[in-house]
C-alpha cells in the first residue's frame, strides 16, 4: 500500500496561535479520463475526501475531484487553543482510508 503520508507542522505552539499544516500523501489520483495502450479507459481511482480533526473536533476537510494532481498536497491552517492530537484521514475511492496522527504541545 501507499507509503506513509508526509506531514509538516510545528511541535508546539502558543495558546491561540494559528499554525500552518502541510500534508502530502502518495497516490496516483487516476482521473478516469485516461486510456491505456489498448484504448480502454483506465478506471478512476482517487482520494475523494480528506479530513483533519483536533482532539475529536473537525478543523478542516475537503472533498476532492479527479482534477486534483497526483500525490495530493494540501495546506491549511489551524488555531491551537490546547495541547492535543491532530488526526488526518484520506479516503480512497475503494473505501480504504490512510490515516496519520501528530501531537502538538503548548509552549510553556
Amino acid at each position: 500500500m501507499a507509503e506513509k503520508p508526509r506531514l509538516k507542522l510545528p511541535k508546539e505552539a502558543a495558546k491561540g496561535e494559528i499554525i500552518q499544516i502541510k500534508t502530502l500523501v502518495s497516490h496516483v489520483m487516476e482521473s478516469g479520463q485516461r486510456k491505456d495502450a489498448q484504448g480502454k479507459p483506465i478506471p478512476r481511482k482517487i482520494i475523494n475526501k480528506f479530513t483533519c480533526e483536533f482532539n475529536g473536533k473537525p478543523v478542516f476537510s475537503c472533498a476532492l475531484e479527479p482534477a486534483i494532481s497526483a500525490n495530493p498536497y494540501i495546506q491549511f491552517d489551524a488555531r491551537i487553543d490546547e495541547a492535543g492530537t491532530f488526526k488526518f484521514a484520506w479516503t480512497d475511492d475503494d473505501g480504504s482510508v490512510i490515516t496519520a496522527e501528530e501531537k502538538i504541545a503548548l509552549k510553556a
Binding site: I18, I19, V59, S69
Partner: peptide
C-alpha cells in the same frame, strides 16, 4: 475540482492545493 470545508478551529480561511 475540490470543496474545502473550514471551521472556526481553522483559524484562517486559507488553503493551498495542486490541481489539474
Amino acid at each position: 475540482v475540490a470543496t474545502l470545508m473550514f471551521t472556526p478551529l481553522s483559524g484562517k480561511a486559507e488553503a493551498s492545493i495542486r490541481i489539474r
